[in-house]
Design a binder for these strands. Structure first.
Lengths: 160, 160
DNA sequence: TGCAGTTATTAAGCATGCAAACCATTTGCG
DNA sequence: CGCAAATGGTTTGCATGCTTAATAACTGCA
């Protein structure tokens, strides 16, 4: 391994995190490509199947941890493809309720399976204590992030 | 914590990775905003300071682990800002050599400092064994990724 | 009650990444 | 040698994220 690379590896735990996270997502994407779900579009579908209804767009924004305009655009796409539909919220005229269509429900199940399959494949051979060690490091990093910025949104959701 | 969230946390180690990686990068970005370096532009500058010259664009592509068109566009921006310049490669008329200007060199130092500072701040309070435990989990995950796909590019750089 | 501030959604525009298609050059092999 | 395949760069078009700002509706307090 060239020097600069070893150097980088020492420097950047963060780079490693991002790279692995991206690779992970790519795995799920791969499994779902057949359903026409590209990149990020499967996540709204997944969460629509997990969140307790009624689900407003804002609820999705919080669950997906992406910004409202991004969610809106994804829903436009999913609506056009007939996986979700939006209906007015009687209780609050500003908001819209989002639901899965039958087709959407069906696909949500596929998504769940794909996510679970990838997860168990990638974590194969890693013991629970090892995983927990990772989690505790992650939590420490999140705490360190939180420390200086003082912003609860730095890692969405903030410290648990 | 609501049920669906606990559920998600168990499901998606990958989500966690991506989120932390993004937060990490945001920290560096924050420190470098004053230098007019946004998001990804500081990385080419950093690597131009680390790679042994001469550096062709392809070398950057490999180091940055992003695709050639993305690198090209970033270099366009950096060139316009006077941080780098491209010169013809006598040895191979297809390729271009990329170098830092004096201004670029100066900024590269700031980038290095910022990266190191963020790294040491975020890893503060984490022991070497803990970190190593993480690394070994990461390596296992990479191996698992590599397993089925068989593609050396799945996590760029492949298994070490 | 009524206005000020907050919240939900959308619109517009930018930053970054990718993949596919294309050109110019270089390399390797029959 | 000479042509096919590989390699370095760029162009184009798309996917996804963000920020900022507009609009509509709700909420809370004087």
């Amino acid at each position: 391994m060239p020097d600069f690379e070893r150097n980088e590896k020492e420097l950047s735990f963060g780079r490693r995190l991002a790279r692995l996270g991206a690779a992970w997502r790519r795995q799920v994407d791969n499994d779902l490509r057949d359903y026409g779900l590209t990149e990020a579009t499967w996540r709204p579908v997944l969460y629509l199947g997990l969140l307790p209804p009624p689900v407003r767009q804002t609820d999705l924004v919080r669950a997906l941890e992406i910004e409202a305009p991004s969610v809106g655009r994804l829903l436009d796409v999913l609506e056009r493809r007939g996986l979700v539909f939006r209906s007015p919220d009687r209780a609050d005229k500003r908001s819209k309720l989002v639901s899965l269509t039958d087709k959407g429900e069906h696909i949500a199940r596929q998504v769940r399976h794909a996510v679970e399959a990838v997860s168990s494949r990638l974590l194969d051979g890693i013991s629970t204590p090892e995983l927990q060690a990772c989690y505790s490091v992650f939590e420490r990093i999140e705490a360190n992030l939180y420390d200086r910025t003082g912003a609860s949104a730095e890692v969405a959701g903030g410290p648990s």
